[in-house]
Design a protein around this nucleic acid. Structure first.
Lengths: 133, 133
DNA sequence: TGCGTACTTGCGTCATAATGCAAGTATACG
DNA sequence: CGTATACTTGCATTATGACGCAAGTACGCA
């Protein structure tokens, strides 16, 4: 296998073998967590409130059952979007503002980094996008 | 209803009524599109390749049927992640590097903006996060 | 210790979506 | 015009996930 390093792959298939920052940052679990309208609503409420909220409080934001909200918040915490802190019998969920911000910006950087062409075609261009249109 | 404007809501429920940039940027459709492992794989291949790719090319990246790839790429294009250009009987899909980057950064900004406390408790703090812990 | 509050978990139901196969459409080429 | 190529669409199957209800757990309080 002609594995090229730090070079532009010739085809999407070759590109699949290249490891780039984008591979770790494009995490389906995070996006799956953010891909549900109800969860987005709950997250937006918590984010805009600007302070931690309990399951009961957040549940007042939408019409679904409390158990559903409990599950959604736990899932968002698993995905790294929220932070859970248990205090007696109540659970305070807090938005991880900085972490999400950094994560999204890192992903933006990684994606845009793919757009640039770091390869200066060495010789014949074997394996490195020779017939790029 | 005591609608407060540009003030920190007292509860997640009150926060639900507040319109913030985050409301438009937190689009479930985008994240739903990015929430599938197969689509992420196809997107990563296309992104790392750095050039537009056809359906057949991208389909070589993973083991699923060509028709599945066709559907996934169309879905990613609908979500604004890819751009489709038809040329004869082949379709070239291109990653919208700049658009995604901007979108993610705008979201990062909007989320982090929620973390800051723009409200200087006016008087009694009616409706504005009085008992923020 | 008994009860109420705050949340979680089990489970059944329903909806959405991912996949593969087969058939269809559109375009190029001889 | 017929055929091959490149992709799309219809359809059935299967898997995943969202939801509500009911029961369970954990903690605080009297």
């Amino acid at each position: 296998m002609t594995q090229v390093r730090n070079r532009r792959p010739a085809s999407p298939k070759q590109a699949a073998a290249c490891r780039r920052p984008i591979d770790d940052l494009l995490d389906p679990e995070l996006f799956k967590a953010l891909g549900d309208p109800t969860r987005i609503l709950l997250l937006a409420c918590l984010a805009k409130c600007g302070r931690p909220g309990t399951v009961s409080e957040v549940a007042e934001c939408c019409a679904v059952d409390l158990s559903v909200v409990s599950r959604h918040l736990a899932l968002l915490a698993d995905a790294g979007v929220l932070h859970a802190r248990k205090e007696g019998r109540t659970v305070w969920y807090r938005v991880r503002y900085e972490e999400i911000g950094q994560r999204l910006r890192a992903l933006a950087d990684a994606i845009e980094a793919c757009a640039q062409t770091p390869v200066r075609r060495s010789a014949g261009g074997t394996g490195c996008c020779p017939k790029t249109r």
